[in-house]
Design a protein around this nucleic acid. Structure first.
Lengths: 206, 206
DNA sequence: GGGCCATCCTACGCGCGGGTAACCAGGTCA
DNA sequence: TGACCTGGTTACCCGCGCGTAGGATGGCCC
C-alpha cells in the first residue's frame, strides 16, 4: 500500500497488476484525505497519473473500489489483534500487546485507519458489515480469553471485550492526532495499565 | 426533540417556533435513519408534512440544519457527563455515574447518538470540531478528577480520560445494538467495574 | 371591505460527479 | 505487413438533489 511513490510520467504503460496496486494506493490517499463522499473518481485517476476509464477497467464502481481498500485494512487490523493475543500466554502481557496493536495500526502508513474507524458510508450495509466485523472479531478474540479466566457469562465477556477495544481504538486515535506530547510506548503502557488495573490502580502519589 | 407526534393534516399553518421544532424533529429522524448524505431535504420536508421552501425559511441550508441538530446533542451529552461527575464526590461512584451517562445518552430518544458518534460528514471542519469537542470536553472533565487524585501529568491524565470515554462510548453503542442480552443497569455496572478495577479485577472464579 | 403580513405551495434551474462510448498506439506473432 | 491484443485517451451523457423564483391563501387591523 506504500506502493510506487515513483515519478509518474503520465504516459507510461504498466502491467495490469502493477497498475492496480498503484490505483489502490492513489485511491487510499484520496479517500483518507476527503472521505468517501468528497472523493472524486476524477481525482483518484489524476493522482495515479491516469485517466478515469482506466479506473473503471480495474474496478466496477466507486463503491467497490472503496470496499476493496476497506477489506484490506480490516483484515490488517484483525490480524494484528490476533497476533498480539497469540504472542504470549500471560494475560497481562496480552493486554499490553493487544493495545499496542491498535497504536501500531493507527500509526500505519497513510492514516489508513481512518477508513476503518472514521468511515463516512456506514449507512451502506456492505460497509457497515465490514466495520462491525472488525469490532466483533477483535472483541470476540478478547472475550474468549476473558471467559477462560473468569466466571463471566459469554454476553458479559463480549461486552467487556468491546469496551476494551473501544478504549484502545479511541485512545489510539486521540494519541495520533495529538502527536508529540507522549511517545508511543509510554502511551501504550499507560493504556495497558488502565485496562489491566483500572483507574483505581493509579494511586494518589502526590 | 420528541416533539409533536401529532396528526399532520398537511395544510395546517403553524406559528414559527412550533414549526421550527417540528422541522428539527423531522430532520433528526431522517438524518439518523440515513446519515447526512443519503438524507434528502425533500424527504425531511415531506416527513414534516410541509414543502421544501418552508425548510429554507427556517434554515439557510442542509448543513446548517445538520449543525443545529448536532449542537443540540453534543451539548446534551456534555451536560450529562458533567452532571454525572458532579453528582458525587466518591470517585468510584463517579465512574459509575459517568458511564451511566453514556448508556443513558445512547438510549435517548430517536437514536440521536448516531449524530454524535457515527456521523458521516466528519470531513467538514465544522462538524469535526463539534464531534471532537464532545470527546475533548468529556475527557477533560474526567482528567481533572484523575489529576487531583493521582500523580499523572496532564497529558497522561487526558489520555486516560479519552480512553475511558472511548470505552464507555463504544460499549454503550454495542450494548444498544445488541439489545436484549443484558439489562442496562447490569451493563453499566459491568463497565464501571472494568473501568475501576481493570480486567484483572475479574477473578478466576470458575 | 381592503390592504398587509406571515405562512405555505408548485414548479424549475443548474452544477457536480459517476459512469460510458468511441477512438488511438505500440508491441508481437504468423 | 497486417491482424490483434493490451493498455490508454478525450469527450460526452445524464440523473440526482440542493436551492430558488414567483404565486396562492388565510388571518388581522384599520
Amino acid at each position: 500500500m506504500t506502493a510506487t511513490p515513483d515519478a509518474k510520467p503520465r504516459g507510461t504503460r504498466l502491467p495490469r497488476m502493477a497498475r492496480r496496486r498503484q490505483l489502490l494506493s492513489a485511491a487510499q490517499e484520496v479517500f483518507v484525505e476527503n472521505g468517501y463522499h468528497a472523493a472524486a473518481m476524477d481525482e483518484i485517476a489524476e493522482r495515479a497519473g491516469v485517466s478515469k476509464p482506466v479506473l473503471y477497467q480495474h474496478f466496477p464502481g466507486k463503491q467497490e473500489l472503496y470496499l476493496a481498500l476497506l477489506d484490506l485494512h480490516v483484515d490488517d487490523m484483525i490480524t494484528r489483534c490476533r497476533d498480539a493475543l497469540a504472542s504470549t500466554t500471560d494475560n497481562k502481557q496480552r493486554v499490553q500487546a493487544a493495545i499496542g496493536a491498535f497504536f501500531d495500526f493507527v500509526s500505519g502508513q497513510g492514516e489508513a485507519f481512518r477508513l476503518v474507524f472514521e468511515s463516512d458510508l456506514r449507512n451502506v450495509a456492505q460497509v457497515r458489515q465490514r466495520i462491525e466485523r472488525n469490532l466483533r472479531e477483535s472483541a470476540e478474540m478478547i472475550s474468549h480469553v476473558i471467559q477462560e479466566d473468569t466466571g463471566c457469562s459469554s454476553d458479559e465477556a463480549r461486552l467487556l471485550g468491546v469496551g476494551l477495544v473501544g478504549m484502545a481504538e479511541v485512545s489510539a486515535r486521540y494519541w495520533i492526532s495529538s502527536t508529540g506530547s507522549i511517545p508511543k510506548d509510554a502511551a501504550t503502557q499507560l493504556m495497558a495499565r488502565l485496562a489491566w488495573r483500572g483507574i483505581s490502580g493509579f494511586p494518589r502519589t502526590s
